[in-house]
Design a protein around this nucleic acid. Structure first.
Lengths: 219, 219
DNA sequence: ACAAATCAGTTGTATTTACAACAGAAATGG
DNA sequence: CCATTTCTGTTGTAAATACAACTGATTTGT
């Protein structure tokens, strides 16, 4: 677990805490480390989750497959981000989606009740973590609403432009990489891959964008 | 403000606290009451919000209008629910959406920093509120993902069935009312109103559903 | 109670998308 | 390094959707 303390130090959840404090909190918060191979399921729809988890290595997708094999990617998790936090309250019910490793990944599980119950003196950074937790989940909330804004556009082109310009803003640059290949981007935006590929090329031919693999430039 | 303490008592945010405790907390948390007429904007996209707010009377929609007048309804707020919580962190930036009263409404504003900063002894229910806050925002998170699941369906019929069956489950009954008229439902599901109306009637003719105004029955 | 405004359903047409099938490019795995 | 698999772009067709226009029903405001 020690090798990931440097990672944790740069997460939003532990922002403001030093490496020693994090080290101390790891046991206080009941931290457990798990590893996953590419393609492994971290969680499956229908399971019950009672942990707050942080990705410290690799990459994850939150996705849903229907009976006919159509896949919807509802979000992606990058190193340093937490996930599963929406399901830790007592009455949250079963997970609606799968969480899948898209690369070999490492995840730290925390006991949510130990986080939310402020221990009297042992961890002076505890209230900091609570505030961070609130801020991070509220940020995730904003991202979800932003994604809703993208896919509630009617046409494939509008969805693409909405998503790509948001990514450009987020990266503070008109050139950026996205965490999806074409099929995954189509699943993320809920459109057909070939139609999207077609639209991307039209936009390129019209001089709106340039792209190569998962790297895009807005013009 | 006193007349709304009974409402606050039944909110998720104040779950477990008695009326006296809530009364005491109102000043501790810097509560302020505002009233809005139907059609008034509670918040506008581009504004900066620094309060946690709870709707104690009426009804709100969270929505976005684009240049061409297309409206997307990203969510609705019912009495007792909080909103704006996603924008209270220091680096959250400006609001992306409008919050509009769909009926005459009353809203209580709380100072988020007073909520998150645990006061030493004055409010023994303070840590309870923090836990409630976390659980409610995480529930909102789940709802957003559920909504993403609905509108990421490809066809209008699938979107309708996904949404309606979710509402049926949520109401624990195959008969239920929805907080939208047809245009609003179409904006919520990101589809064309007339196409949706058409599809609803087809589904009724096929014996899948029954409906009258905003009341639906799944068969 | 009446006029005006809003709402829900219907229809036809132009546009857009989904789906399937395929070919070349790129990545992967011995 | 070569064979295999995966990925991306392309095309044609069938299906679904958006848009506009209109009607009758319902609601609202005075």
């Amino acid at each position: 677990m020690k090798k990931y303390i440097g990672i944790l130090k740069n997460t939003k959840l532990f922002a403001g805490a030093g490496e020693e404090e994090i080290q101390a909190m790891l046991s206080c918060l009941g931290a457990v480390l798990h590893h996953y191979k590419k393609g492994d399921y971290v969680f499956r729809a229908g399971e019950y989750v009672h942990n707050l988890t942080v990705l410290v290595e690799g990459g994850l997708h939150i996705q849903k497959d229907d009976y006919w094999g159509n896949r919807a990617i509802l979000g992606d998790v990058a190193v340093g981000e937490m996930f599963g936090e929406a399901y830790v309250s007592p009455d949250s019910g079963a997970l609606l989606n799968d969480v899948v490793a898209v690369k070999d990944s490492s995840v730290i599980f925390f006991d949510i009740y130990r986080i939310l119950s402020v221990c009297p003196s042992a961890c002076k950074f505890h209230s900091l973590v609570i505030k961070n937790l609130f801020f991070e989940i509220s940020e995730k909330n904003r991202k979800l609403v932003a994604k809703l804004g993208h896919i509630s556009n009617r046409t494939t082109r509008e969805k693409l432009l909405s998503y790509l310009s948001d990514e450009a803003k987020r990266n503070k640059s008109s050139a950026f990489s996205i965490p999806f290949n074409r099929q995954q981007l189509a699943d993320f935006l809920s459109v057909d891959r070939s139609a999207m590929s077609n639209e991307l090329c039209k936009m390129r031919d019209e001089g709106l964008i340039e792209f190569n693999k998962n790297r895009f430039v807005l013009l």
